[in-house]
């Protein structure tokens, strides 16, 4: 039981990290960025390339090296997200919503098959694994690696929440989500804030990508597809556009999957996740913490 909860929270914290970028972008420009999962994939490959360039890493150094790679990768995917917005989305800001959505799907394919052209179709084995010692807590076996990854995810999420709720920049993001025109009259450079929002969201996805690579050990060019959909599901469960809601949605989805898999079997995991998505979309489209979102729309 505690094992199931722990597994759920562990996977859920990945979902939450990726879902946050989804949710922030939706909040600020009302775009479902279907290419967001591919930035996670890009992060995994960027981390892979950096680790390859650094050379062999002894297992005692695995953790500090991983954290350093994480920071560089976040910068890389962050800038990729900014470029994506600048090239693909900004010219369509005033176009019908559907055009933007289709462009996002196109951007997703472009990233996936661009990566296949660059790195090949075969899965790559990550040059760094976080294995190592495990400990027992209240009947659940958790590894040190898992603890570190969850720790990093939690720190990033708390940081993001503080940024959005307490700072001038976060206030500007929330203002633009409500009314971009009036925000510009406050002296806010709306395009610049949107760029920075893409940077932050994409950096978080990139961090999750590296962490997934180091934890699961294998990456491929389509790895972002499913996680993108899961992140979307997590965002919908929590209330898309709502930051604490999205974090909660990620954890809830992780737990649902963990328990669903236990009761029904592993092959039902994705069925279970997307069944929940459909359920939420029909019964409670604003999500668990979504009341504020209905006011925003």
């Amino acid at each position: 039981m505690t094992q199931l909860i722990w597994n759920g929270l562990f996977v859920g914290s990945f979902y939450a990290l990726v879902a946050l970028g989804y949710s922030m972008v939706y909040g600020i420009i009302k775009l479902l960025n279907f290419a967001h999962g591919d930035l996670y994939m890009l992060g995994a490959f960027a981390g892979f390339a950096i680790l390859g360039a650094v050379g062999g890493v002894s297992s005692s150094m695995a953790l500090p090296v991983l954290l350093a790679v994480l920071v560089v990768t976040m910068a890389v995917t962050g800038l990729a997200g900014v470029a994506l917005e600048r090239i693909a989305y900004r010219p369509l800001r005033r176009a019908p919503r559907l055009s933007l959505l289709i462009t996002a799907v196109g951007a997703s394919f472009a990233l996936e098959y661009g990566m296949r052209a660059a790195a090949g179709a075969d899965p790559r084995v990550y040059p760094l694994r976080l294995g190592g010692s495990s400990l027992e807590v209240a009947g659940a076996r958790l590894t040190l690696a898992q603890l570190v990854l969850v720790g990093v995810a939690v720190v990033l999420m708390i940081g993001l929440n503080l940024l959005v709720t307490r700072t001038r920049e976060g206030r500007a993001m929330r203002a633009i989500a409500l009314d971009p025109t009036t925000s510009s009259l406050m002296g806010i450079d709306v395009n610049a804030v949107i760029s920075r929002t893409f940077f932050i969201g994409s950096a978080l996805a990139g961090a999750a990508g590296v962490m997934a690579g180091a934890y699961y050990g294998k990456i491929d060019f389509l790895m972002g597809f499913l996680i993108g959909l899961k992140a979307f599901t997590a965002a919908v469960i929590g209330g898309i556009g709502n930051i604490p809601g999205t974090m909660l949605g990620g954890l809830v989805l992780g737990l649902l999957e963990s328990f669903g898999t236990f009761w029904l079997g592993g092959e039902w995991r994705d069925v279970f996740a997307f069944g929940v998505l459909i359920l939420f979309l029909t019964v409670r489209p604003t999500g668990l913490l979504g009341e504020r979102v209905t006011e925003r729309v």
């Binding site: 206030r171 500007a172 929330r174 203002a175 009314d179 406050m186 002296g187 806010i188 504020r292 006011e295």
Partner: peptide, 15 residues
């Protein structure tokens, strides 16, 4: 800005 507080609205003026 309807879901921001009065104080936050004023703070945005000082952006």
């Amino acid at each position: 800005f309807s879901t921001l507080t009065v104080h936050e609205n004023l703070q945005l003026g000082g952006y």
